[in-house]
Design a protein around this nucleic acid. Sequence first.
DNA 1: ATAATAAAAACGAACGTTCGTTCATTTCAG
DNA 2: CTGAAATGAACGAACGTTCGTTTTTATTAT
Lengths: 201, 201
Amino acid sequence: MIEETLSKGERTSRAIIDAAYDLIIDQGYAATSMRQIADRAGLALGGIYNHFSSKEEVFVAILEKRHPFFQIVPLLNSVEGETIEAFARNAAHTLIAELGHHPEFLNLLLIEIVEFKGEHVPLVFEKMLPMILQLAQRLSNLGGNMREIPQLVLARAFLGMFFSYFITELLLNQTKFMAMQTNALDHFVDIFLHGILSAEE
Amino acid sequence: MIEETLSKGERTSRAIIDAAYDLIIDQGYAATSMRQIADRAGLALGGIYNHFSSKEEVFVAILEKRHPFFQIVPLLNSVEGETIEAFARNAAHTLIAELGHHPEFLNLLLIEIVEFKGEHVPLVFEKMLPMILQLAQRLSNLGGNMREIPQLVLARAFLGMFFSYFITELLLNQTKFMAMQTNALDHFVDIFLHGILSAEE
DNA sequence: ATAATAAAAACGAACGTTCGTTCATTTCAG
DNA sequence: CTGAAATGAACGAACGTTCGTTTTTATTAT
């Protein structure tokens, strides 16, 4: 349907990006060759260069379409919840429900950090700025009492909750002898909301 | 002094590991060549193969000596503090004081995840097990009241606090227009201890 | 101590592949 | 019919690894 309305160039452009994305999040950038990308996209090696002028340009195109933040921020914008607590809980479950099936969805972010030293981060941030501002506006109107915490710290800690959840999940999945933790996320959210200490003293 | 007592083989072995470590955390594994490693270690290309039988074997040797967990866990073991809160605060500051000057110290962990899919994680975990058990024993004796949280979740959340601190710090350092956050770590610890919600209702 | 010797280490050219990119040519779409 | 898209051979450079040789080290016998 949609494919029909796209020009041929646009279609193979997307096929290249899709193929490169799959390969790169699986193998990393340097370990993925243009030949592999061409094969998977279903065209000849030289054909890629009719759409992208270099390997890195393909990578940048992937970042602009598929950076994890572009998945996370809109999802957060769609989360319901009147209070801070309700929003945090719903956000956690929404993100896990949507992204939990793709534990490698963070790989693109990590690859960019590891293989490009984060030099494309400004590009991604700039492209995300409207979405971020909209989200910030939305969050500032939430009900509930919150301790005095700088907004940026709050955002970092909230994002960090997912970073740590996914990265440690990834590490644990490798050590088979450790038990699965089905409700670990709820605990993470609880710690984020209430901390590890008990109220009594 | 110490060098004098080491055999020639041991010395160049270490030189190779040191050189490879510097290059790999800077460029990634696939992007680092054996020639670069040889040059930086100060020997000829073929010389490496008198000490390691392949490039991956060099990488494994690096992991066994320099994996971030081997720096973190002993540091945590050395942290003082009688209560949970005191320990958490001291631990955070100790780790940042020691590792904060090397924001790339997590790279080896990320590289292993990204370029090897975490397949060496069991190896590292096994080597760390005694240290971990010792630390767990130490922490279970801390004073202070804590909410009921599974030990493994607690460990994940605690580690996650540093993951998120360092990764977001790394991201922010790229976006020059954002202000430095000098005391962000204290806020992270506060959130870890008390959560973001205020006690009143 | 000194000389002889066997093992370990260093060397660097060479091997066969694979890499990213280019290009003249052919095919196809609008 | 014209420009965009696809082709696949070819380029030089770089890759990991091997190998025959030379040099250095550590040990033994003198």
